[in-house]
Structure formats: structure tokens, C-alpha cells
């Protein structure tokens, strides 16, 4: 894999104001994403995982500038996305496509599949007019649908097929990066597997780069090259797939992995059950945000925000944000 960075996210912050008080002033902020830095290399699949409220979807939306980030920089293919005008950003979206969780909500019910696809091409002027329909048919076949389905409406398709249409639409403008926001979460397992295989196949064929936002670690393990684990708006661990699953360092990552029910009744594993709920991102805990649920927390965790660190027992590029990595590793 080439190691050229396609996307560089630096110190990204996304704080949403909360209005309140008698005059409706901003009384506080939801710190949905708080100082997040990472790169995506060309041709790889980088996944962002975490539970609800961790900021994974917000990160995706900020990259697409669907929300304007509070602070930080996002560099895509050498261009600072945040400095682009609205108009230039629209043009840039040709290279940055997104696939959402609910394909039905993101497809216009009054347009045929052919229209949906050709319109996407027309907006970006990606394909000359007379070739668009031909290209649409080609795309349908690429994603495993039939050419004769081109004049049907979205409601005539099943959930898995609609997701294929969503994928075809994203592909129609030849993007460089596709952000998949919980793209397979709503699908039945047997169909989800089809779509995952399709995404992998497309990546090989078109040298696509994926930012894959998901909560299902099985799916993530299947599709990713590298994985970011987020908790309450911060990255707690980032690693290549193998390191993350075989040698997790952060206590939250460990708990998360051990929480997943294994589809094999013979496997008896040690389970770390976390106490309590994820705290509110409005007033996140001081210091390490995980300390309220962490079985290893000490005073330093309550006071100081841990930095992402790489230690000797970790592979290059594997970093975790915990004050006690050494201690925890020694105990186990």
C-alpha cells in the first residue's frame, strides 16, 4: 500500500452550542468532537468505531463540511477543505462521497434509479451528457444490480438493493474517498455480507479509499486496514487491524472488544463489564474522559488528559491514550 496521505485531519473540534437561560444565550457546548487528529492513506480503509455519542459520525460530517467545524484543519489531497468557499467545496464533493445508513431516506422516492445516478453525474459534470445513461447502466452492473432495473423507483427495491444504489450513486462521480456512515448497520446479516464483499471488491477495482464509520466491531474487523476507537469525542486508540484486535492497549478498547457476544458457545472468555453509562458530552469528565468507568483509574487520570502514545510493545503506528498502559500490560 502506498503511504501517501489522502486526508489529514488536524486538531478537529466540533462543539455545538446549547441555548438556554432567560435570554436564550449559549450556556454551554456539546463537545461532540474534541481535538481529533488522524490521517487516511490512499487506498486504505480506515474505520472509526465507538458507541453512540463518541463523535464518530460528527467527524464524518465535519470532513464533508455538512457541519462547519469549530476548530482544526482538514487537508484533502493537498487542499485545505475548511478554507474553500461553499461553491468550491461543492465541486470538491466530487472527490468526497458519502453513503448513509438509511439508503431509503437518502434516495429521492420520485426519481428512477437512472435519474438518481445521472443527476449525480450532472451536478458534478463528471460524465458528458450523452454518455450518462450508458454509465448509469454500467454502474448498476458494477454494484450487482441488473441493467433492466434502471427505470424503477427506490421503493421497488429491498434494503440491500437500495444500499447498492447508494453505492452506485457515490461511485458515479469517480470519487477518491468514500465515507461510509453506518452503511451496513440497517441490513440483515445475510445481505450485509453481500454489501461488505461488494465494498471490498470495489475498493480493489477502483483503488478507493474508505472512511468507514461503524459500531459493529465484526464488520470493522472484516473491512478495515486501520482502526480508530473513539470515546466521548476523543481518540483513545489507533492501530492497524491486527494490533487492535490482538493487542489492544487502552482499557476502553479492551472492554469494548470483550463486550461483543461471540457467535460460538464453546468460547469462554474473560469479560470486562463496564459500570454505568457513557457520561454526557456536555460536561465530559476532566482528565481522561474514560476515568469514570475505568477499572484502572487513579488520581492522574482524573487530572491530566492522556496523550496518544506508542510504546515498545506496540507496533509502529499503534498509539493509545492512557496513563497506565505500562502498568496494565505488566499485570496481564
Amino acid at each position: 500500500m502506498s503511504q501517501k496521505e489522502l486526508l489529514k485531519v488536524n486538531n478537529l473540534k466540533q462543539h455545538f452550542p446549547i441555548k438556554g437561560g432567560i435570554l436564550g444565550r449559549t450556556v454551554n457546548h456539546v463537545k461532540a468532537v474534541d481535538d481529533v487528529t488522524f490521517d487516511i492513506y490512499e487506498g486504505e480503509t480506515l474505520s472509526v468505531v465507538g458507541e453512540s455519542g463518541c463523535g464518530k459520525s460528527t467527524t464524518g460530517r465535519a470532513i464533508l463540511r455538512l457541519d462547519e467545524p469549530t476548530d482544526g484543519s482538514i487537508e484533502f489531497d493537498g487542499v485545505d477543505l475548511l478554507s474553500l468557499s461553499r461553491r468550491d467545496m461543492r465541486k470538491k464533493r466530487k472527490d468526497l462521497q458519502v453513503i448513509f445508513q438509511d439508503p431509503y431516506a437518502s434516495l429521492n422516492p420520485r426519481q428512477t434509479v437512472g435519474k438518481i445516478l445521472t443527476e449525480a453525474m450532472a451536478i458534478q459534470n463528471a460524465v458528458p451528457k450523452e454518455k450518462r445513461r450508458e454509465r448509469a447502466i454500467e454502474l448498476l452492473e458494477t454494484v450487482g444490480l441488473n441493467a433492466d432495473q434502471i427505470d424503477r423507483y427506490p421503493h421497488e427495491f429491498s434494503g440491500g438493493q437500495r444500499q447498492r444504489i447508494g453505492i452506485a450513486r457515490a461511485l458515479s462521480v469517480d470519487p477518491k474517498l468514500i465515507i461510509c456512515d453506518e452503511a451496513v448497520s440497517a441490513l440483515d446479516v445475510s445481505v450485509q455480507a453481500q454489501v461488505l464483499n461488494l465494498l471490498k471488491k470495489l475498493q480493489r477495482e477502483f483503488n478507493l479509499t474508505f472512511l468507514f464509520i461503524a459500531h459493529d466491531l465484526g464488520v470493522v474487523r472484516h473491512i478495515s486496514d486501520r482502526i480508530i476507537v473513539m470515546y466521548l469525542g476523543k481518540i483513545v486508540e489507533i492501530a492497524d487491524k491486527k494490533s487492535l484486535f490482538d493487542n489492544p492497549q487502552h482499557p476502553y478498547t479492551k472492554a469494548l472488544l470483550s463486550s461483543i457476544p461471540t457467535p460460538d458457545p464453546e468460547v469462554k472468555k474473560e469479560r470486562i463489564i463496564l459500570k454505568g453509562d457513557v457520561p454526557s458530552p456536555i460536561n465530559p469528565p476532566q482528565g481522561c474522559r474514560f476515568h469514570t468507568r475505568c477499572p484502572f483509574a487513579t488520581d492522574i487520570c482524573r487530572q491530566e488528559v492522556p496523550e496518544l502514545r506508542n510504546l515498545d510493545n506496540m507496533k509502529e503506528g499503534h498509539r493509545a491514550a492512557c496513563h497506565h498502559i505500562e502498568k496494565i500490560a505488566a499485570e496481564h
Partner: peptide
């Protein structure tokens, strides 16, 4: 069998899932 082969496992690596063809 198809259902079990479709599950992306978090505890082992599988190169290619074996989905069931078609739709529910």
C-alpha cells in the same frame, strides 16, 4: 449454515464472507 457464514467475526479474520445470495 449461510447465516453463520455471513457473520463478520470480531474474533477471527475471514478473507471473504460467504453471503447468502438474493434477498430476504
Amino acid at each position: 449454515v449461510g447465516l453463520l457464514n455471513s457473520i463478520p467475526r470480531h474474533d477471527t479474520d475471514v478473507d471473504e464472507l460467504e453471503p447468502i445470495k438474493g434477498n430476504v
